[in-house]
Nucleic acid binder design. Sequence first.
DNA 1: GAAAAATATGAGTCCAGACTCATCTTGTCA
DNA 2: TGACAAGATGAGTCTGGACTCATATTTTTC
Lengths: 201, 201
Amino acid sequence: MVEKAIRADARRNRARILETAEAVFAAHGPAASTEEIARKAGVAIGTVFRHFPTKAELVEAVFVDRLSQLAASARQLAESDDAGAAFFDFFTTWAELSALKQSFADALANDGVDIQAAAERGAYPAVRTELAAAVETLLTRAQAAGAVRSDIGMRELNALLISVARAVEQVRDDPDVQRRLLCTILDGLRAGTASARPAES
Amino acid sequence: MVEKAIRADARRNRARILETAEAVFAAHGPAASTEEIARKAGVAIGTVFRHFPTKAELVEAVFVDRLSQLAASARQLAESDDAGAAFFDFFTTWAELSALKQSFADALANDGVDIQAAAERGAYPAVRTELAAAVETLLTRAQAAGAVRSDIGMRELNALLISVARAVEQVRDDPDVQRRLLCTILDGLRAGTASARPAES
DNA sequence: GAAAAATATGAGTCCAGACTCATCTTGTCA
DNA sequence: TGACAAGATGAGTCTGGACTCATATTTTTC
């Protein structure tokens, strides 16, 4: 069962393509041409299609990669003692990780318009579910701890996360603006904001 | 100087195309094909190109239309006595108007990626400036009245507006979720949330 | 180190969608 | 109502970008 027949250069190329695709999608959105990715990765276009038979699969691979990172981060934070801090930390991590990934937010937003085919099968739905579960844990615990307003659920949070990713990216040139923006949104999420308003850092 | 040589049917067609384009872009994003718009508008594709020589110009026309509406709304609200309410009302109007316009939010977000050429000339920049000015008035007055936190400026607000448009649209199927989402964001914007927290409606 | 298998190459195919234009139709105006 | 210019038509052109495949290069294996 241990498939070990992958040639070393093939593995290297695959990683390189994935990496490049991530950067290119971030810069030009998922509409960026496969040819550009191939060129920047220093391989022929045929090589890209060998590893990712369709463009949708390439896009999917990039997202699965990102989502995995975020899910891992969420799971780790879920073990923290301070449920409130864990929640807000995740939100911040999310904003940071998303900041450079325009296409990421896009694809999440329409969830299956750009990557219809891919969204139905493969690793994508699994990772997405995984992430959702981890985030839900964070939210529930933070609400139980009285740190987050209790009138919102996963749908609200999801929509908010996606839009935060976009908003933050929009002002990526100015970290101060980013911070204030994030702070504003987080303040809205706090439970009965009258109580636990920490001093501005 | 009064150019009055526009044939009646031409004016009708133009309006029809604009209207249809708005709907189609809303449904499928700005990548929707010109041919589809022509078909749904009941005209030949050549007619679309007669009125809007390039696709970018068609997209621009649709946005200018929307932006004008919003600018008008903002200007009107700016004359209200209650600066705080005016600000929050505008936010709500914005969210509603944006709710059905995916491409609208997109185009605003990247402000000149999809419509590069168009953004540089024509009515677009003018209307955009107009809207920005009206919104700035609303913000400044609301802050002066102590209704909105004073640590944010137009950049933060802008990014927030765009993200709200997206977020709201994402959950357009559920008005309750929409309301809670908007409420969360507005709460974050209020000044020293400790003071003026109205009862949950 | 040579055969075999896996992988890389990139010119070429194919197609969708923007845009053109020769020709036909219709509103306008006297 | 006739004439003519503005407008409409849609088959056809052109282009960019996804995807293929015959051939050339590696790796791997023994």
